[in-house]
């Protein structure tokens, strides 16, 4: 086939380095002391202070009220990521099932009502969303953190697309066997969608874990802070300090990026499939 020139590899190595080296440096620097970083700049090789720094970041009570630890924020991020992914899968599978497998009036208007949510990202209606949440007394709750993020139709469309590709014969056979709609959904469609569910779980977990603006507005009680919110706090605290806690900020960044990074790398194939393939 084609000849491979060394230049191709050079470009790829350069590209990979530009993307990966900053991540490695963030990790390496998090294992040095703040004073070392302050004197010598960022590190590419790991140092010896790592255990102490991570222990401190995970267990030290910080923030303004002094009651939130890194471990707590890690837990909150996990709740947000998993809660969002599961909620998204449940809601959107059910809605897609209704839209694909039932003949009922208003199906088309409902389809469009859900579809329209794709038009406007949360960021443009952030102020009124906040007011609504405050009226519903959902500020500083996990419900308020997770449920409003579910109001977008991406998942519904992935599943709708998938259900449409499921052969009609399955439903016909199930009906002959006397299965009702709920039975068919639980016994046949859900097991059939396992791969799809896993792929969407990965994408949505990363999406939920990485949320920034919404958790920032929803949570003033530090017990609900996620790691992303913690990053903002740690940067606000060090304005004006002698030697900023570079190492702790890096450690926090590593904690914040490690879980989604691992999920994406371990399930790489499934993740890419879920992301790029929706018309099977």
């Amino acid at each position: 086939m084609q000849k491979i020139k060394p230049l191709d590899h050079l470009i790829l190595i350069l590209g990979a380095a530009i993307l990966i080296v900053p991540v490695l440096m963030a990790f390496a620097s998090s294992t040095h002391s703040a004073a070392e970083i302050h004197m010598n700049g960022l590190y590419l090789a790991p140092g010896s202070e790592g255990v102490a720094t991570y222990h401190k970041v995970l267990t030290q009570r910080g923030g303004f009220t002094g009651e939130v630890t890194g471990a707590r924020m890690l837990l909150n991020s996990l709740i947000l990521g998993v809660g969002f992914a599961v909620g998204k899968i449940v809601l959107s599978m059910m809605a897609a099932y209704a839209l694909v497998y039932f003949r009922f009036r208003l199906a088309t208007p409902i389809f469009w009502a859900i579809f329209t949510t794709l038009l406007l990202p949360l960021e443009v209606r952030i102020m009124p969303s906040y007011q609504v949440m405050s009226q519903l007394h959902l500020l500083n709750t996990y419900t308020g953190l997770i449920v409003p993020l579910l109001a977008s139709a991406t998942g519904t469309f992935y599943f709708r697309q998938f259900f449409k590709s499921v052969p009609d014969e399955l439903l016909e056979a199930a009906r002959i066997d006397g299965a009702g709609p709920v039975r068919f959904f639980i016994d046949i469609l859900v097991p059939l969608s396992r791969t799809m569910m896993a792929a969407i779980f990965i994408i949505m977990f990363v999406y939920g874990w990485n949320q920034y603006l919404w958790p920032m507005l929803m949570t003033t009680d530090e017990g609900f802070f996620t790691l992303m919110r913690g990053i903002k706090t740690i940067l606000q605290v060090w304005v004006g300090s002698q030697i900023p806690d570079y190492n702790e900020a890096f450690a926090l960044a590593v904690l914040a990026m490690l879980p989604p990074l691992l999920v994406v790398l371990v399930f790489q194939r499934m993740f890419i499939k879920g992301l790029t393939e929706s018309d099977k």
């Binding site: 809601l91 209704a98 039932f102 009922f104 949510t117 449920v147």
Partner: peptide
């Protein structure tokens, strides 16, 4: 969407309602 579909008046609403509520409120 499908050649064969269920023909029930109430069941589809049960399935689509959670998503509709979230979309309406939020």
């Amino acid at each position: 969407a499908k050649r064969v579909q269920f023909d029930r008046p109430l069941t589809p609403w049960l399935f689509v309602l959670p998503q509709l509520l979230v979309v309406a409120i939020f």
